[in-house]
């Protein structure tokens, strides 16, 4: 297993319990789609998994290492939902910095081809300050595809990127997991999840209500959107 989450509970205050006994696993070669309505605790779950929020209860393992360990941190990469990037660096410098943190050398040829692939040819020497919202997201994706960690966590990073880049991303992410890696992909784009995700986890009000292969879910419910509607109706019924 590349990610094991067991009995995870998290509360911001004593009155606001966000995650309730969440357990799930992501095997190797697997893209796990994480869906749920706004405020269901998806980003909190991701932050606890990556030790960006303090683990209060339960256990998280990345590979065989607990999430707080250096090994776990070195084998995971996080693409956040906001474009919180160092704007004083150029795209190339950002990638150089990220590679430096993970102790790897930057492959300049790969960098150039990745920028060209995502329709940003020649922009790697521009400051991130001058990048559009979509370009910043693409830069984060490029970092993930160049660093190729055991676990890649993508928190709504795909919002705002163009259709062309989305199509390229779908190919790249499948290629990434084919090499024994895993991806936790949080998105509201159900159609894209149906195309790329192997499994789907549904989080509602902090509880993991479904974790199953996408194929099975589509066979049983038609589409992920139909499943989402059913689940929300069930949860909202008093």
């Amino acid at each position: 297993m590349n990610l094991t989450v067991e009995n995870l509970n998290f509360a911001y205050t004593s009155r606001t319990q966000v995650l309730h006994d969440v357990s799930f696993t992501i095997p190797t070669n697997c893209i796990m789609g994480l869906v749920g309505p706004n405020g269901s605790g998806k980003s909190t779950l991701i932050k606890v998994i990556l030790d960006l929020l303090q683990l209060q209860n339960g256990q998280v393992k990345i590979g065989s290492d607990i999430s707080q360990s250096r090994n776990a941190k070195m084998s995971s990469i996080y693409l956040s939902s906001n474009d919180f990037l160092p704007e004083f660096l150029t795209g190339e410098e950002y990638l150089r910095f990220m590679h430096g943190l993970y102790g790897e050398a930057l492959d300049c040829a790969a960098l150039t081809s990745q920028f060209a692939k995502y329709s940003m040819a020649g922009r790697h020497r521009d400051l991130i300050e001058d990048y559009s919202h979509g370009m910043r997201k693409k830069l984060q994706l490029i970092a993930a595809f160049m660093l190729r960690r055991r676990l890649t966590v993508i928190d709504e990073t795909l919002n705002g990127i163009d259709i062309d880049a989305l199509r390229i991303f779908e190919g790249d992410v499948k290629e990434l997991v084919a090499e024994g890696r895993s991806v936790l992909l949080c998105s509201h784009d159900f159609a894209m999840l149906e195309r790329v995700a192997d499994q789907l986890a549904f989080l509602i009000r902090g509880s993991m209500v479904v974790q199953a292969p996408v194929g099975d879910l589509i066979a049983d419910h038609g589409t992920i959107a139909d499943l989402a509607n059913e689940l929300i109706q069930v949860m909202e019924t008093p």
Partner: peptide
């Protein structure tokens, strides 16, 4: 424009170098 490109890119490889860049 809030930033101006000064100093070489290789500084970004080191954490201290990035602090100097900022």
């Amino acid at each position: 424009r809030r930033f101006f490109i000064l100093l070489p890119s290789w500084l970004a490889k080191h954490r201290f170098g990035v602090y100097i860049l900022v």
